[in-house]
């Protein structure tokens, strides 16, 4: 089976799980490219950061589109694990994808209330 290029587009703060889903394909010998849109970053727990690093080790890449890559998700040398990509660059990359997966829900209109802290 030929390895597939699969992009996971994450537009909602609750759907950072798209990184894990991408990693699940990486370990099946596909190339996963989770893209976090407009700063909807998940909490960078050790688990999440390890997954992001693992995607990269498996020749994929987690991207940030529309917001600077966060500086609290770094490798052991302190280098950012998430790369930045513009919307136009993303569009061109998607033309070359085998599958494009808008994951979960779209961005919410309202900011989450304080009771959502940690989510």
């Amino acid at each position: 089976m030929e390895s597939l290029k699969v992009y996971f587009l994450i537009a909602n703060r609750m759907y950072g799980d798209g990184v894990r889903s991408g990693l699940g394909l990486s370990v099946e010998n596909h190339y996963a490219f989770p893209v976090i849109m407009n700063g909807e970053f998940p909490p960078f727990t050790n688990y999440m950061s390890d997954n992001i690093a693992w995607v990269k080790d498996m020749e994929g890449q987690v991207y940030s589109c529309g917001a600077p890559a966060p500086d609290n998700c770094v490798d052991e040398d302190g280098d950012k694990l998430i790369a930045e990509i513009s919307l136009e660059e993303l569009g061109e990359a998607l033309r070359d994808a085998d599958f494009i997966i808008p994951y979960g829900l779209s961005k919410q209109t309202n900011e989450p209330p304080p009771s959502c802290s940690g989510a």
Binding site: M1, L4, V6, R20, S21, L23, G24, L25, V27, E28, H30, D98, F99
Partner: peptide
């Protein structure tokens, strides 16, 4: 199952 089932869907 695991995410491998998704891999099977793609393949």
């Amino acid at each position: 199952r695991t995410q491998a089932f998704h891999g099977a869907q793609l393949e």
